[in-house]
Design a protein around this nucleic acid. Sequence first.
DNA 1: TAAGTCAATGTTATATTATAACATTACTAC
DNA 2: GTAGTAATGTTATAATATAACATTGACTTA
Lengths: 167, 167
Amino acid sequence: MEKKKTSPNISKNFMNHNHELCVESSLKDFKQHFIEKELKLTPLRLKVFQLLLKDHRPLGAYQILDLLRKDGFSSTPPIAYRVLDFLIEHGFVHKIKKLNAFVACSHPGNSHSPTFMICRKCEKVAEINEKESGLKFNKETSSEFKIEEAIIEFIGICKNCIKLEVI
Amino acid sequence: MEKKKTSPNISKNFMNHNHELCVESSLKDFKQHFIEKELKLTPLRLKVFQLLLKDHRPLGAYQILDLLRKDGFSSTPPIAYRVLDFLIEHGFVHKIKKLNAFVACSHPGNSHSPTFMICRKCEKVAEINEKESGLKFNKETSSEFKIEEAIIEFIGICKNCIKLEVI
DNA sequence: TAAGTCAATGTTATATTATAACATTACTAC
DNA sequence: GTAGTAATGTTATAATATAACATTGACTTA
Ligand SMILES: [Zn+2]
Ligand SMILES: [Zn+2]
Ligand SMILES: [Zn+2]
Ligand SMILES: [Zn+2]
């Protein structure tokens, strides 16, 4: 049986989609990158990543701690922040500055400067890569300033929530 | 005596420039907008804005409070946050999410989604408008998501700090 | 296997950033 | 002058994040 290779869709996270498949695929990538990079996949790291995969909504550090507590993990602030730092450093998680919250990366394993779309209504987030976003800034600017990191977050309303508003 | 009208320069804030003129001009604009919009220019609002004009470096709320204290103003947190909220709401100040800090707006009076360049070495910040930044994102993306607000911050190293590093 | 080492996690305490809720002041309008 | 209102003052606390040190457990190596 051949797997369907769907083209990347900016709106996927906001719309109905096969989220089980979505999680499964992310998790597989996640584990694969740990193997390739010879990182240690501990229960805590796996658990935090799984929490972040739940529904494309970012989680705050203290929300994560609450969920860890329920699952019998230790749950003092450094636990969450350390694991998040690790996952961010290795490109598995991003922080959404607008929300002081964290999301699982959609293109894990590669360090990159992602662009986020944040729906203020359903609170879901989609990460889009440079090609999809079509974001460009002019050459002159680059010569004036050597960019090392970019924070790009668009806040607005998603296709699905627009549709619901119209009804 | 005729005033020189310099064209907007992305790097100005990072380089040597006539900062006295820079402050004077910003302050004049600031006051003018209060008159035009019939806002109340209180000593506190003026003071906070002046603090933010000092040297193109963002200030945290608690730094502002320390400076207010030194000048005999009340200095409990809500004082700073309320004035900052007011100044942000009316487009005189922006918050830099990367730094949890605040800067005076370079194009005050108009609500807009600015782009920031943040030098990690000298810690100065420059705001550039949409025309200067050359930032564009493709139409397809826009139809997928209705953008209402954009957070765009580039972190890197400025022209002046690059120069100093090379020496 | 015993001792050493190191990364990961656990724990306590505290720093930093931000807001809620209510009190007072001072200007305006009637 | 009294009432209404915007601004500021005050107290308390919420929310987010880090510092510093202790313990564990896996792996090394002698
Ligand atoms: Zn999904
Ligand atoms: Zn939505
Ligand atoms: Zn200047
Ligand atoms: Zn610099």
